[in-house]
Design a protein around this nucleic acid. Sequence first.
DNA 1: CTTTTTGCAAAACATTTGCATGTAA
DNA 2: TTACATGCAAATGTTTTGCAAAAAG
Lengths: 142, 142
Amino acid sequence: MTTTRTRRTAQGTAVRAALDSMAGFISAQELHRRLSDEGLKIGIATVYRQLNSLVESRDADAISTPEGQLYRACTDPEAHHHHMVCTSCGTTIEIEPPDEAWFAAIAGAHRFEVHSHTLDVFGICADCRAERDSRAARDSAE
Amino acid sequence: MTTTRTRRTAQGTAVRAALDSMAGFISAQELHRRLSDEGLKIGIATVYRQLNSLVESRDADAISTPEGQLYRACTDPEAHHHHMVCTSCGTTIEIEPPDEAWFAAIAGAHRFEVHSHTLDVFGICADCRAERDSRAARDSAE
DNA sequence: CTTTTTGCAAAACATTTGCATGTAA
DNA sequence: TTACATGCAAATGTTTTGCAAAAAG
């Protein structure tokens, strides 16, 4: 039996590298745009295929938004992937859930067998807030 | 000044009623299918418009999944809308966050201004689990 | 060589929108 | 009557797929 192995390609490497160098979440479309702008020849279908395979292998994780899926490199494949996302600049901070035991407790109370959970916080980060506030101050002054 | 009021229509009433009678989340497509099956003449666009308006008025809330948006009637418009969803039968239980203060704390620690957050738990409810287990027992016995 | 990956275009879906028509109020 | 709501079809936008050609091993 010959084990099937995944081949190393320029496109695959680029997608992974791009995702790794990214501060926050990014959409497949946006990622494709950036790679193309850098001169890489890559099709949108390949970006989706690479991204899906990264998620599958738990090297990336995805969150769903009304505009589609957003992807991010996953530092610790064992971690639970909770994030605080700045809706202004896209910066993402990985956060710790209040207490993993809480999930077990609430599940037990309702006799649920928990398979997964989401916990994401959205807002404006300090930098964007500062920028926004200074702009507001300027505007109201004129 | 004449206040603009929302008119009562068969379609609007049906969407709201259907959502109210629903145990869990449902997609716009699925909801449209059911209403149509019941003989109601309603277009998919109207379902989307009604659903969006319910979300807007906070009478329903929505979650994003890879397959699209799922909607659910919202019992308490003031509540924070966290759910525990059975991925087998779709039943949804509204759950209380561990501690609303936690969100404020984590936000403060990273100097974020929080606008919204999600917290959803997915798994198998007691009933579905029992059913699954009995089936498993039966299968292993044959 | 053999098999996996790619690119492209077409397809499949979810959701929104323009507009003429229907219908509450 | 007079707006607002609807239905339909067309338009959007995202993600997937079929297939022949390119590339990895």
